[in-house]
């Protein structure tokens, strides 16, 4: 899929480190690598899922894209233009095209601004239209996220809204500028199931109607399957597996993805989900960041190779790549033979 499609956003070997503070007098602490040479191309119009546990670097990737942080190495391209060093007006123009939906709707709205003021804020910042046109845009954005009738909500304040309503306000705030690319950082992790379903459907509708490209960051494989065209599985800042969502989830090749599948609650997901029995190892001793990041817990890993060398992304077929020495194309994998 996607050969004919155009790349909209490209992360080119991005590295991001966080320096942890050491003790008083002691040598300063180890760097934590949040992203390690991550290479992702996102195609125009798709919903790309970034799946991983906490600490996998998925949120950092999103923050780098909206320029809340700067990468230590590597470049980010939007439509082929590098955006890592943008300043002033260019940076402001970029923010018109790329927006973000935050995780926690209880934190991402200014408690002192009404719904109307929150949503119209980006329009004022970018001096779009006069007061009247802005109002129309706000009403439209509110309707598109299902806050209707808009007049009922426009003058409310965040504390008067439910979590789902707040998140819809946050989405309207992100969408009112009509961006081309939106980073959605776990937009439903704080919401109830029925609310999440609403948010998912709003995002799908936005993509259908406005042709927005989404980067959907999540820890839930099921949500990724529902929303995404392609997904990338991350672990400790490394890309482990990337491919079409349906393909990756039906036929996961990387032992880590398989472990994630195994960890799903058994009863509900029992029918049809294959068990890979990738019993996680007790952590092995390793030094430094040289080998495969999953080596310490992997069942398939073999000592010298996996601990010394970082497996590169290996193409299994057109669209499905895996960073594991032992992944083979086809249904059968070394680890999942006896499912």
């Amino acid at each position: 899929m996607g050969n004919g499609k155009q790349t909209i956003l490209e992360l080119d070997r991005i590295v991001k480190r966080y320096r942890t503070k050491g003790f008083f007098f002691g040598a300063h602490g180890q760097d934590v690598i949040a992203l390690n040479e991550v290479f992702i191309k996102i195609l125009r119009g798709e919903i790309f899922g970034l799946v991983g546990e906490s600490g996998s670097g998925k949120t950092t990737a999103g923050r780098l894209i909206v320029r809340l942080e700067q990468p230590d190495q590597g470049k980010i391209y939007l439509d082929g233009r590098d955006i890592t060093g943008l300043k002033g007006k260019a940076s402001k123009d970029y923010s018109r095209r790329v927006q973000m939906i935050f995780q926690d709707p209880y934190q991402s709205l200014n408690p002192l601004l009404s719904v109307f003021d929150t949503i119209s804020e980006p329009l004022i910042i970018h001096k779009i239209g006069n007061a009247e046109a802005r109002e129309d845009s706000v009403w439209q954005a509110m309707k598109s996220v299902g806050l209707s009738p808009p007049h009922d909500f426009a003058h409310r304040y965040p504390h008067q809204l439910s979590g789902g309503q707040r998140q819809r306000v946050a989405i309207a705030h992100a969408m009112v500028l009509k961006p081309e690319f939106v980073v959605a950082d776990e937009p439903t992790s704080m919401l109830d199931a029925s609310m999440s379903a609403q948010i998912f459907n709003i995002l799908l509708e936005m993509r259908r109607r406005l042709k927005v490209t989404f980067l959907f960051i999540t820890h839930s494989l099921a949500a990724a399957r529902y929303l995404c065209d392609r997904i990338a599985v991350m672990y400790k800042g490394n890309l482990m597996e990337i491919g079409p969502a349906e393909e990756v989830l039906r036929n996961p090749k990387h032992p880590y993805t398989q472990a994630l599948m195994d960890a799903l609650p058994k009863f509900v997901h029992s029918g049809g989900v294959k068990r890979y029995e990738t019993l996680l190892q007790a952590e092995r001793e390793v030094s430094g960041y040289v080998g495969c990041p999953f080596f310490v817990r992997c069942k398939v890993a073999r000592a010298p190779k996996c601990s010394r060398e970082k497996p590169p992304l290996k193409k299994l077929d057109d669209s499905h790549s895996v960073a594991c020495f032992y992944a083979e194309p086809g249904i059968k994998t070394r680890s999942g033979g006896k499912a």
Binding site: Q165, A197, L249
Partner: peptide, 23 residues
């Protein structure tokens, strides 16, 4: 029923999620 059909699943056909309307 509504609660069960508002969860995305990993197996079977990818069905449209049915959110529960209202509050």
């Amino acid at each position: 029923k509504a609660l069960l059909s508002s969860y995305p699943t990993l197996t079977g056909e990818k069905a449209q999620l049915m959110p529960i309307p209202g509050e």
